[in-house]
Amino acid sequence: MLSTLFDGLSLGAIYALIALGYTMVYGIAKMLNFAHGDIIMVGAYTILTTLTMNGHPIIGVVAAVLVCTVAGIVIEKVAYKPLRGASPLAVLITAIGVSYFLQSVAQLIFGSKSQAVQLASFGTVKIANAEINIGTLITLVVGAVIMIALTLFVKYTRTGRAMQAVSEDRGAAQLMGVNVNKIIMITFAIGSALAAAAGVFYLLQIPAVSPTLGSMPGIKAFAAAVIGGIGSIPGAMLGGVVLGVVEKFALSVPALAPYATAIEFALLILILLVRPIGILGKKRREKV
């Protein structure tokens, strides 16, 4: 039981990190970046390449964060910026296009087969008669640290407050001298860096990489962001953790295990029906 809880929390941390990227981009740039999940895959392949070139895992992690950040910024500039002001549907479809683009490029370069990535091997530690893998603990701790850091950043730094301003009222923020383009670029950069971190933790748990690595976690993290209330940073964290724990507990019950994904999505629908803006979402008034 305890072991499942820890697994759930650590998976939740991974989903939360990805969901944070989704929610920040949605809140600030007002768009759904469907390609976000595939940034994880980009990070994972960077690590694979570093390891194949006999680099140290830490270098791999740093490289992954850098590559993902750059990728995020480039994607924003090339695919999303021209569509600012266009209908949300168009942006969503472009995002889907970008996602496929990333997946096919990865397949062309690395092949479609799953490849093993041994980032680090950790032993286990006994906590109250459950064997907990140290990698899981690291994910939890570092993930929590990153999330706390992000919250502090958004609340107390100048850039962070500028991000909040843009998300509330872009026009007014512009009037107050905020460089909206730069803020959006920074948002994408941070989101992608978080995705890279999520990728690293993912590899610690599941040491394999393939072009479709980011697809399912991306969708689930999106669901997590929506559950928590899209546009809200604490909401994304809450949604991620909830989804991760639910998934692991569903998997640990043999009768429910095949339906784990269905249960997660059913939970999403249920929460949306009861509270359409998500648990911690902010109500938006629609004016005529």
């Binding site: 499942t4 697994d7 064997e131 998997l251 043999p254 095949p258 784990a260």
Partner: peptide, 21 residues
């Protein structure tokens, strides 16, 4: 004892291993 997984959605087996420990 048995445990199942669905390869499409789950690539993490810690729960299954725990069931069969």
């Amino acid at each position: 004892t048995e445990a199942t997984f669905d390869a499409e959605n789950n690539k993490d087996f810690s729960t299954q291993i725990a069931t069969l420990k």
